[in-house]
Simulated assay, not measured.
Amino acid sequence: MKELQFNRHRRLRSNASMRALVRETHLHKEDLIYPIFIIDGEQVKNEVSSMPGVFQISMDNLRTEMEEVTGLGIKSVILFGVPHEHDKDEQGTGAFDHNGLVQQATRFIKKEFPEVIVIADTCLCEYTSHGHCGIVEDGKILNDASLDLLAKTAISQAEAGADIIAPSNMMDGFVTAIRAGLDEAGYVDIPIMSYAVKYSSAFYGPFREAANGAPQFGDRKTYQMDPGNRIEAFREAESDVVEGADFLIVKPALSYMDIIRDLKNNFTLPVVAYNVSGEYSMIKGAALNGWIDEKAIVIEMLTGFKRAGADLIITYHAKDVARWINEEK
């Protein structure tokens, strides 16, 4: 029989140590950003029904939460405020209140856990009575009139000690407005982690329960991107780069890994994958029913985000992943 000529790729898969030796993409605890929902009140720890393992917590429970987060080796968190309905108004003034929920939580974390990177989600939707990310007039979301409020919110968060400002509103010009506001207020060294490419996605459903931030009318399709568009992502990201962004977020992540790779190939800023609530809930739900191996699937998914080009990952799985990584050492 004539000798066959072919490559023996399996030589590098022969055992676990060999596979680890040649592995191209690695997931580290330093890659993870953990979202925390701060709710008004005392002794509150509400599990989000559609997001098992994720809680709305009051300020008096934040120390315990942060002790767990830091004990696991997670070095970055992103904060969301969850005010009561009666504290919301048309302009979302709670977003830029000196004693707002995100501001209080930021001051606490930076005092008690100074080594942690605090990222402040900068939007109005959790604080507006109508649930939209900007000022509404006659049923229309006003772009330019909303920019001043977003800049005020970013400045108040920087004053509270936020290390990074993360505007998620998708108003045109939001990065340049926030950069100008921060610079004028003396916060020239505070970076902006822009939600540069944010799609109008069905995967956000559970988050709206967690943040109590569903729109009271209509939807967000006039300011968030159409899921069918790819070239538009280049335009959105390029605008934010020119306007002064320091990080570029792609949200959601799982259905948009091609966009993560596109941004990584075309821009030099760090790319952040937002592993959103619906992606989390699908896996958690299936795992609780015993249908999947949760650890294997989560690690594979997050490694996929890294392979696609993400430098960082915002994920509700962060504590579990950090725990799994620790167990392997």
Rank of each mutant, 00 (worst) to 15 (best):
36 I>C: 09
297 I>F: 07
315 T>Q: 01
316 Y>Q: 01
217 F>I: 05
55 F>C: 07
304 G>Y: 06
248 L>T: 02
252 P>D: 07
281 S>R: 00
317 H>M: 12
226 D>T: 10
275 N>C: 08
234 F>I: 12
92 G>A: 05
139 G>L: 04
1 M>H: 15
44 V>P: 09
138 D>V: 15
268 T>D: 15
138 D>S: 15
200 S>Q: 10
241 V>A: 00
73 G>P: 00
318 A>Q: 03
242 V>I: 15
272 V>C: 10
303 T>L: 11
196 A>P: 02
259 I>M: 06
274 Y>K: 09
32 L>C: 06
114 P>E: 14
219 D>G: 04
55 F>I: 09
120 A>G: 10
326 N>L: 13
315 T>E: 01
79 L>D: 06
144 D>N: 12
279 E>L: 05
253 A>F: 03
31 D>R: 00
144 D>Y: 09
128 T>A: 02
19 R>G: 09
181 G>C: 12
151 A>P: 06
112 E>N: 12
142 L>T: 05
141 I>P: 00
217 F>G: 02
217 F>L: 01
238 E>T: 14
30 E>R: 13
167 P>W: 07
36 I>L: 14
282 M>C: 05
8 R>M: 14
328 E>I: 06
303 T>F: 03
270 P>E: 03
199 Y>Q: 06
282 M>V: 11
275 N>R: 07
28 H>P: 00
161 G>T: 10
321 V>D: 04
68 E>I: 04
317 H>G: 04
138 D>W: 14
190 I>F: 10
43 Q>W: 09
105 A>P: 00
27 L>C: 00
225 M>V: 03
224 Q>N: 07
95 A>H: 02
314 I>M: 10
292 I>S: 03
36 I>R: 01
42 E>G: 15
299 I>Q: 12
105 A>Q: 02
323 R>S: 13
88 K>E: 03
322 A>F: 08
182 L>N: 02
169 N>P: 10
292 I>M: 07
250 V>I: 12
241 V>G: 03
215 P>N: 08
89 D>S: 07
47 E>K: 01
299 I>P: 00
7 N>L: 04
205 G>D: 08
184 E>P: 01
109 I>M: 11
248 L>Q: 04
11 R>D: 11
187 Y>T: 09
100 G>H: 10
313 I>T: 09
157 Q>A: 12
115 E>A: 14
261 R>L: 10
136 V>Y: 05
75 K>E: 14
125 C>M: 06
103 Q>E: 13
168 S>V: 02
288 L>G: 07
85 E>D: 13
170 M>H: 11
253 A>V: 02
223 Y>I: 04
169 N>Q: 09
1 M>P: 13
143 N>C: 06
237 A>R: 00
196 A>Y: 04
206 P>Y: 02
234 F>S: 04
104 Q>C: 09
269 L>S: 11
80 F>R: 07
141 I>H: 01
18 M>F: 08
315 T>S: 08
289 N>E: 11
157 Q>H: 15
155 I>E: 08
322 A>N: 03
90 E>C: 00
